[in-house]
Design a protein around this nucleic acid. Structure first.
Lengths: 210, 210, 210, 210
DNA sequence: TATGAATGAGATTTCATTCAT
DNA sequence: TATGAATGAAATCTCATTCAT
């Protein structure tokens, strides 16, 4: 009964892909709008237009499906990132902020999913999410620290700064309820953070020339 | 099923601590640590040391119990607030930040509860939370606008500023993982926000004398 | 979710017992007539005239229910036994055979249950059944060995003799399809076994005087 | 669903071992070790190294596959038998016992299969097994009766004797857990049965000269 | 008020069977 | 003949809610 492998995961080398993606898309849509427990495998199957059993051909369990969505989203998010290590620190910070806002702004369902997955989650998901969050944190954090090391940013607790930026991005995406485009929000946020970070440093002027 | 009146809400004329409070406390502890659906009425009853049927004497349903916790928490949060309309705007903003951090720092379970209750929730809770969030938003927002109107803060989209502050507070409370006390975090955050907001205004100096 | 104890197992100190017994009785009836997997909890509940959920109040799982039946049956079987260590060995052997036949003859469903539970069973049940079978084996076996040691029975492999007796009892109970009463069968079987065992010993006469 | 003809039963004109045999072998191995319901068509296909759909080319259904195994085994068992009507009754009885033990001892999986298929089985299998069992019963039974008619065996209920022998064979095969070879067991069993049957007859001596 | 045994709707998962290739 | 992805009926178990005591 349990001596079979964790589900053969059908090989679709050929072009008839699609089904797995359809399932992920349907599931994402639902998980983003309802609590985990209220999303039934029936409803996922219905929305993906496959039979219920088919879900289990591609995902071992409901939890695995959920994890699949997360992983899928994280991959897309990672690909979306593009840091230019040559550029000015301030520049790079602005780009990072803009990138994040842009990505989640165009992946609203995934944003919602993450937004509610904050802390009290099942052990299995926890790892995946923690790691992803940590990567985001580290990226911003090292940028901040580099800025401080170079004297472009004033001295401050880099953790506080990082969390401020990350928290702000999240809040803007979730609660900024006026019609807007992401670029404006990025502008406003970057500016405020840069002002807050460069106030009183020699490079104050320079950082804002752009 | 739901055409009975909203539950008699037993009166505790006598002095003993109140079963209702015990139930709320137990439920908060559990809801803060597990997703809604995984908290069973059985577990609440066990932790509160009452019989399962008793829960229904005080709360019409599981959902009502959850709502009770939220309302209870919001009341405490509101009481905790103390704004001094006479004080300087910058001063008041700092106080507001410090107050928030202090309150949630000493009500960790309630913080966790709110943290995961972000968007995809049952209709009934939604209203309660939305309203509370709105009140917080409005408070910070009007403070910011006042500051701008008086020329203490530079011009910027007050919504962006407000959400930045609120989002930052949330992120700091949830993810600042070093040992710390709340006051330090408030200091750091206020300072950064004030720098960001006053940069380039006449009152730049004045705002930072404190 | 799994930090609760293995199910409180309702305490019925008072006279209103019955329900657990009713469930056991219903389940025994069904398990004796259908393979394990074909007995549904629904059908057990229906036959016991309780709600499905009630089954889980008394038994943690379907497997536990099955185990409950086994244990219950084994207890009854053990109580039914009554060996008189003072009596003659041949006498005791006859009594043991008669006892067994009598018990299972009046507990047909339990007999059927055991009859199919032979070797390829779930790990959990295995222990319970093995132990019970072993006890039966040991009892007969020691009786045989004692008889041989005293020279009442002729020398032979006591395991072969024991298994012959046990196997014969089982076959008679299951496949003797003529109308009969158990006592006759016991007589016939005992006689044949005793003849086979005493042939050629000094005590040949003596063993058959009864 | 079942109004299609009983499956074309592919002809293997060519020499290669035959997929059907491979399937039977694989299925026997599995059915002997797990309850019917736990043997999945997937696992059979995997072990037989054919695709799942292929199973249905050779067997109409899972039940038909099971029946195929039984029939296959019964055929082999029948072929294994070899009675010499010229020989002495006692001789023939000993041979029959030895034959049975030998056959099942070298077809352990098939033994296990039968051992658990005792009474509570699906209607279709029941017939096949009953008939086979009946044949075995009749064979031993007529031998016993012949012995009694000739005065070689003492008077007794031939059904009891037959079932004793059959039951003993089964028990020895399944539960004799010491290292041994089948011939010894046959010796011991035959001897005991013959002692038990000839005790007190004129031919007592003669029957044991061998 | 307080209890906790009883209920039964509903969720996840399995797997024999089908069928397009 | 042979394949294996797809199907969906059916089974176990959970738990909010009720109600007799």
């Amino acid at each position: 009964m349990s001596q079979s492998e964790p589900a053969p995961a059908p090989q679709f080398a050929n072009g008839r892909a699609g089904k797995r993606d359809r399932i992920i898309a349907a599931a994402l849509r639902l998980f983003a709008r309802q609590p985990y427990q209220e999303v039934t495998m029936d409803s996922v199957a219905r929305l993906a237009a496959v039979a219920k059993g088919t879900l289990y051909l591609y995902f071992e369990s409901k939890e695995a499906l959920y994890l699949g969505i997360l992983t899928d989203g994280f991959e897309k998010a990672t690909q979306h990132n593009a840091d230019d290590p040559q550029a000015q620190v301030a520049e790079r910070l602005h780009h990072a902020i803009a990138n994040s806002i842009e990505f989640y702004d165009s992946h609203r369902d995934f944003l919602q999913l993450l937004a509610t997955e904050e802390p009290r989650i099942a052990a299995a998901r926890s790892r995946v999410i923690q790691e992803f969050r940590q990567r985001g944190f580290d990226f911003f954090s090292s940028l901040i620290e580099e800025g401080m090391a170079r004297g472009v940013f004033r001295r401050a607790d880099p953790r506080v700064v990082t969390l401020t930026i990350i928290g702000a991005i999240r809040a803007l995406l979730l609660y900024y309820d006026q019609p807007h485009d992401g670029a404006e929000l990025s502008q406003e946020l970057s500016r405020m953070m840069l002002e807050g970070l460069t106030a009183g440093t020699r490079n104050h002027r320079k950082a804002h020339t752009k």
